[in-house]
Each structure stands twice: as structure tokens, then as C-alpha cells.
Nucleic acid binder design. Sequence first.
DNA 1: CTCCGGATTCGT
DNA 2: CGAATCCGGAGT
Length: 214
Amino acid sequence: MDVDVDGSLAGPDPDALATTTTSKTTTTTTMKLPRHFYERDTRIVARDLLGKILVHVDGGVRRAARIVETEAYHGPGDLASHARFGPTRRAAVMFGGPGVAYVYLIYGRSHCMNVVTGAAGFPAAVLLRAGEPVEGCLHSTRGPGNLCRALAIRREHDDGRDLLGDDLFIEDAPRPAEPIVRGPRVNVRYAGSWAEKPWRYALAGSPWVTRPPV
DNA sequence: CTCCGGATTCGT
DNA sequence: CGAATCCGGAGT
């Protein structure tokens, strides 16, 4: 069962964007995504995260990228998810409340960042697979390991970090002009039929996407 | 404890 | 296409 992918927010989100109106001008200030943004169906969050700005304040230096590719990992039965073994030490954060970073090391070399979603107790997260460099990037932002390297995000410092804090967060941004495309998740062939779920989302035409889903 | 293999990347 | 390189999870 799939979800719609029209790229719109599910409803009004008054905390997501602060608008200040004066007599002559209207200024819009970017804001951190609020907790309830993350507290929704994983696949909706994965889709809505496209175009948003991932920010890491790294020792006073702002490093930021616009998210262009995500993947949803949804529930205890998802055989592609790290949560498939239950709340193990590594995946325990996926079983906690939403709006927290789950950062892990893969193949002994690359760090990958996820955002925990949905209600506490239901293990789900969105893998941030690629971004478009915005500010202070140290490396290519193409690919999940590269994105973390570019923003200096590391498991030992950032795993379990609350995304409503001041060091690591995601800023709201206007809905992307690019169409959204989706397809099967990458490198999860071991997951049987779950590998076929079209839970990878990307902005069409972005050169930062690891490979076109369709 | 050992064994298997991975939500990747990079160079050949 | 395969090595790199650490560690999570399962089995004994």
C-alpha cells in the first residue's frame, strides 16, 4: 500500500514558517521543523523532507545542504530496516520519539544519517541520501555517506541527537519546484519483497541524486 | 567467542 | 567489479 506523492504538506503547519508582517513589507523567516512534522507516517515525512535544509552548526560554523533524496524505513516488519531485529543497541533510537537523529557507521567507513519519525514505540526513520550544497560543505553531498562527510556529521557525536536543538536540525523551505519521483530503495536486496517498496524519494533532475529512481 | 555480511564509496 | 574496514547480530 503506497502513499500519495504530490509533494504537499498534509495540512497547515503554523509553526513551520514564521511570517512577520509590517505596514509595508512581509518578511519570511526560516524556522526549524517542529516536532509534529516528524510525528507522521514515515513515507509522508520522507517525501516532505525533499527541499528542506539540513543544518549542522559545527563548532560555530554553519554547514548546510538542501535535501534532494530520501528513503523511508517503516515499521518492525520492514525487512530492509535496521529495526527488523527489534530494539537492539544500534537501532534503539528508531523505537524512540520522533525528531531525533539516528546516525550509524556502514562498511566501517561511511556515516549515514536518518531522522526518526512516527509515534514513539513504532520503529521508523528516513535516511537522508543526498543533498545540494548550500553552505560550508566540506565534500560532495551526493550519497548518504558523502552527505554526512560534507556536513561533518558523525555517529559518535550525532547519533541520538534531538533535531530541535541548536546544533543539528532541519529548516523549513518552500515546496520544491521540481517534481518528485520515487522508486525502490537502494541496496536492500536481502529484504525480499520489501526491497520492491517504492519508498525512495528524489527531486527529479537534480544532479545530486545518486541515481534516477525512474 | 567466531562467522557473515552490510541503508557505501572509490579506484581499477 | 572489488577492496576497504568496522561492527552489528546470530549462532555455538
